[in-house]
Design a protein around this nucleic acid. Structure first.
Length: 555
RNA sequence: GCCCCCGUAGCUCAGUGGAUAGAGCAUAGGAUUCCUAAUCCUUGUGCGCAGGUUCGAUUCCUGCCGGGGGCACCA
């Protein structure tokens, strides 16, 4: 619709120039926007204001001349010139009616966009170390990453969702040591359990499982060998658990990528050699350093320590290099805010590889404060006191949990109150949106059962011209803007845009529902209204799907 | 000290280079013989402070203040 208005303005400006009313045919960048107040029309443009210097006329005068060149159509009811020179367009009711048929025809595809032009995008998220179960912070990252992937896909990008498994390095050895020591303990030995080992009870469970599987002989093994077996066993089990927890949370990855595979295939060494040849990696104090400072980082970073061990940064360089070699035009990493210091160095390695800075983006998700009745939980993997994602999903449900994570911008910290998320009343707005879907399902069922209309056509809107109530036109406008909101959400990578939209649509529907009956004795009007609410139902479903939240038929 | 995020209504948060800054919760009152009251309607207060850019700044820039997070040859 905005494009139509824009074309009308441009055509009028061209005619005004051709007839000599405008001295210039130059059109500066202008905006077609939706004013906040209905008294300012459905659409508004600042054309006259931005053209003032070009046309060497007062904005109001430009506006008046422009409007005189806009032909009368059934689309526009009236045009006002207001304030400092805004041109306000008031559309006729009939301009909005076609949206119902667009929704019914396009159905699950309604709201799709081709703005992505099939560009290949990878969204990597969660990527938690397989050293313990996922906790609430991972849940927020999972909800954000999954939804961003869904939204980008809906907006026409070719999306792959990936999980990077940090199955190499020190934390895995620490995991093995932790299990090994618990095993020693179970075999009767007195041990000192270090603070830097994983403290959770799940470590003891693994020790018990290994004991049952391998028998007491196992503890007589060489420590290094025993630790390796423990690490392998525990990491595998934990990863299985992570996969299950994510599926229960509604998240499915297209690809799981192993860090260890980068070492096994020699890609880490290849990357180091390549950058060394380019003199972007150099030796100092017995270690190898990457010149990240030359690309905007605060200082250069170590990739190989003086003890010969590689750092995480080394495999991350190889990993990101590998991503682009797989053909992704853009790579998006979803990280917790506590990793923000890492952005510059990864970005440096990406740019050093010849990629453009815009091809790499980090979504930094701020931290979650978990509360119960307003009181904070302390969460620390090492101390073993955490509330897992699994706990949260089983306590409050997948939908409520995802709602909490997606209801606000990830740029802000999030207070997640378990008791609030559990409430099945109006304090918990996830139901507010889902209820619309269930309510409309009820109306449609009732319409079929009451047989007020024979052969209700749910594929084509009929008698839409009878939708004339203020609340109906308002709903149509909101339904119309869904695609635009999808594009906004995709271009800003902010899923909460979709949630805010759904809340607006839900509020408009509930208000309409309470004021007007859908099913009445007026058959044509009933058919029109059924089509309208069916359209609302489909858009609610499409929106909720982007967020990974279910759309229940009944509640 | 440096870096990132945030500072908008009593609370939790949306929002925008423009014309009258919104929603939920909380508070108070009201609506259901009728498609699900997990709903609706009515009722107040607000852009942390100071400069700058601009015709116009709550929005962009700088500084300050306040809150959170991060600054390893850790992961």
């Amino acid at each position: 619709m905005k494009d139509i208005i824009r074309k009308i303005v441009l055509d009028a400006a061209q005619k005004a120039f051709e007839t000599g009313e405008f001295p210039s045919d130059h059109v500066p960048e202008m905006e077609i926007e939706e004013p906040k107040h209905s008294s300012q029309g459905d659409f508004s443009t600042n054309f006259a204001m931005v053209s003032a210097s070009v046309q060497k006329m007062a904005p109001v005068k430009i506006a008046q001349r422009l409007v005189s060149f806009i032909p009368a159509t059934g689309l526009i009811e009236k045009i006002d010139i207001a304030g400092p020179g805004f041109i306000n367009f008031f559309l006729s009711n009939t301009a909005w009616h076609p949206v119902v048929n667009q929704i019914l025809e396009q159905d699950e595809a309604y709201g799709r966009s081709d703005m992505g032009k099939d560009a290949k995008v990878q969204v990597e998220f969660v990527s938690a170390n397989p050293t313990g179960p996922l906790h609430v912070g991972h849940g927020r990252g999972a909800a954000v990453g999954d939804s961003v992937g869904n939204i980008l896909s809906f907006a026409g990008f070719d999306v792959q969702k990936e999980y990077y498994i940090n199955d190499s390095g020190r934390q895995i050895r620490t995991l093995g040591t932790s299990v090994w020591l618990r095993l020693m303990e179970k075999s009767g030995q007195r041990i000192e359990f270090p603070d830097d080992c994983y403290q959770g009870d799940y470590i003891k469970d693994f020790a018990q499982q290994i004991l049952e599987k391998e028998g007491l002989e196992f503890v007589k093994k060489d420590a290094a060998e025993g630790i390796a077996v423990c690490a392998e066993f525990a990491a595998t089990k934990i990863l299985e658990g992570i996969k299950e927890d994510l599926i229960d949370f509604g998240v499915q990855f297209d690809h799981w990528f192993s860090e260890q595979s980068l070492y096994d295939s020699g890609r880490v060494q290849d990357a180091i050699d390549m950058f060394r040849k380019k003199e972007l990696i150099y030796e100092k104090d017995g270690a190898l350093w990457f010149k990240t400072q030359a690309f905007g980082d605060e200082k250069d970073r170590v990739v190989v320590r003086n003890n010969g061990l590689t750092t995480y940064f080394a495999s991350d360089i190889a990993y990101h290099r590998e991503k682009y070699e797989r053909g992704f035009d853009k790579v998006i990493d979803v990280w917790g805010a506590d990793h923000h210091g890492y952005i510059n160095r990864i970005n440096a390695s990406v740019v050093a590889s010849g990629r453009k800075s815009e091809q790499f983006e980090v979504i930094l998700v701020q931290l979650v404060n978990l509360l119960r009745d307003g009181k904070p939980f302390q969460m620390s993997t090492r101390a073993g006191e955490f509330v897992t994602l699994k706990d949260i999903v089983s306590e409050v449900g997948k939908d409520a949990a995802r709602f909490m994570f997606l209801s606000r911008s990830y740029d802000s910290g999030l207070d997640f109150d378990l008791e609030l998320a559990k409430k099945k009343n109006s304090e918990n707005p996830v139901y507010y949106v889902q209820y619309v879907h269930a309510r409309i399902t009820g109306i449609l069922l009732k319409a079929v059962e009451s047989q007020i209309i024979e052969d209700i056509d749910f594929n084509t809107g009929k008698h839409l011209e009878l939708l004339i109530e203020e609340e109906e036109i308002n709903l149509l406008k909101i339904l119309h803007s869904f695609g635009e909101q999808v594009e906004k959400s995709a271009s800003t990578l902010h899923p909460h845009v979709i949630f805010t939209y759904l809340m607006t649509l839900a509020a408009a529907f509930h208000g309409y529902y309470n004021k007007h009956k859908v099913i009445t004795d007026h058959v044509e009007q009933t058919q029109a209204r059924l089509s309208l609410v069916l359209g609302v139902k489909k858009v609610i479903r499409n929106g909720l799907r982007l967020l990974g939240i279910s759309a229940p038929e009944r509640m």
